[in-house]
Simulated assay, not measured.
Amino acid sequence: MKKTLVLLGLCLIFNCSKNELLDQYTTEISALKTEQELKNYWKELHDLDQITYLKETKGHLQGDSISITNMIRTALMFEIHGDDVYTPDNVVPILNFTHNYIGDANLAFWPIIQKCKKTGGVIESFGGKFPAYQLEGISITFYDFSLFRQDNKYNALLEKLNNKSYNTTVSETLFEIQEEQKKLAQLEVKDVVGKWNIERMNNIVEKGFFEFVKMSDNSLYLKRKHRLQKLIPIETTDTYQNYKIENEPFGWTYKLSNGNLSLLDDKGTTLIDYNAYN
């Protein structure tokens, strides 16, 4: 059964157009009429999430694509059956959110998290008291920055997320993000601008590194493993350059000066001074 779910997901992801994919899932989900059928479908989405999270799929691109496809199907459950399709004991949306590694997808999915919050239940306590776990899902996927024990930042960051304008059709936005990830996967590295240690908390160096790289489309990206996030220049002087990640939600920026890199918050306060990777 698990292999069947994965193969079906991959077939739809890599061979279907937007209309074909969304039509397939819209037809599938619209056909769910009874409470038990809806419950069974949530169970299927839960199982597929676990397969992907436990890395039973082959390759990062496939794993990321299945993860986003899972989010599309969850969004369609809300869009087709209404908010009442979600019950307080349902962990699927929060698993979709926290097991996904693409920042843009998590941001697009935030309206679903808001709907779950209105219902209450497990969303309030899964991984810690709301909104700690959920904000971590945004801060890690965009900036690889941990908000652990930084409760003083929560209200301001949550306000930024809740006041942001979102596309009303989450499923379509997620599909477009999935297509963009496929395009990014085709790019090649032309030049490495700099390489730094991973530090999710200040002065705590973790295994691995991230890079600023110029890709074959002549744009600059932040690269973590195989994942790329486009960097937008916002200020350039004789001594430093400031960049923001495209579509980032918090107003945080990177300051690059003579090979030294810092992550700044929206007020210009330094969150992390990164150490160069050797």
Score class of each variant (00 low, 15 high):
M1W: 07
K2P: 05
K2M: 11
K2C: 12
T4R: 04
T4G: 02
L8P: 00
L8F: 03
L8T: 10
G9Y: 13
L10W: 01
I13M: 03
N15V: 11
C16I: 05
C16V: 03
L21Q: 10
D23V: 00
D23N: 15
Q24W: 11
E28L: 15
K33C: 10
E35T: 15
E37S: 11
K39S: 15
E44A: 12
L45A: 10
I51P: 03
G63P: 06
I66S: 02
S67C: 11
I68H: 07
I72L: 03
M77D: 04
H81P: 13
D84H: 02
T87Q: 13
T87S: 11
N90G: 04
V91R: 09
V91A: 04
P93G: 03
T98G: 12
A105Y: 06
N106C: 10
F109C: 05
I112C: 10
I112D: 03
I112L: 12
I113F: 02
E124D: 13
P131G: 02
Y133G: 02
I138M: 13
I138G: 00
I140P: 04
S146R: 03
N152C: 07
L158G: 01
K160C: 12
L161G: 02
Y166S: 02
T169G: 00
S171T: 07
E172H: 13
T173C: 03
E176N: 14
Q178I: 10
E180W: 01
E180M: 06
K182M: 15
E188T: 14
E188G: 01
V189A: 09
K190D: 11
V192N: 08
V192M: 10
V192P: 09
G194P: 09
N197L: 07
R200E: 12
N202A: 14
I204D: 09
G208I: 09
E211D: 05
M215W: 01
S219T: 12
L220D: 10
R227Y: 12
L228P: 09
I232R: 01
P233R: 04
T237N: 02
D238T: 14
Y243Q: 12
K244I: 11
I245Q: 01
P249W: 00
G251S: 09
S257H: 04
G259T: 13
S262V: 12
T270Q: 00
L271M: 09
Y274D: 07
N275C: 01
Y277N: 08
